[in-house]
Design a binder for these strands. Structure first.
Length: 108
DNA sequence: CATTTGACTATTC
DNA sequence: TGAATAGCCAAAT
């Protein structure tokens, strides 16, 4: 309606859209997602946005990791192992808590 | 409205 | 190769 405005997507929602565009078997860095979402250097905000994902979401958050290829969680934590497992199921090898970005990095 | 926070990154040593 | 530091900036408190 004439609310004057359309539902302007929040930056969070824009981030989720970008993450959902990452194909299975590929990964992207937080900085890369931030840039693609038009946020510039808000790499940290990407992590926060993923942490605020609503229940029932279908965002492949596990395909987002640090630019070094290392998972963003403390090694051994529950989330860490979950992410590593989800990646492995997609064919992304996680060794020592890290992924070979040169191999699996998503290049749109 | 000022301060803290954070699933980061580039740089330096 | 890896550890420490500074810079980053919107959202949460």
């Amino acid at each position: 309606m004439a609310t004057g405005g359309v539902m302007e997507l929040s930056n969070e929602q824009r981030i989720w859209q970008v993450v959902m565009a990452i194909p299975a078997g590929k990964v992207a860095s937080y900085g890369q997602v931030a840039d693609m979402a038009g946020l510039g250097r808000q790499a940290r905000f990407v992590g926060r946005a993923l942490g605020r994902l609503p229940r029932g979401h279908e965002v492949p958050w596990h395909r987002v990791l640090r630019t070094t290829g290392q998972l963003a969680f403390p090694a051994g934590s529950e989330r860490f192992e979950l992410q590593a497992r989800l990646l492995a199921e997609e064919g992304v090898e996680v060794i020592g808590g890290r992924v070979a970005m040169a191999v699996h990095r998503w290049r749109p």
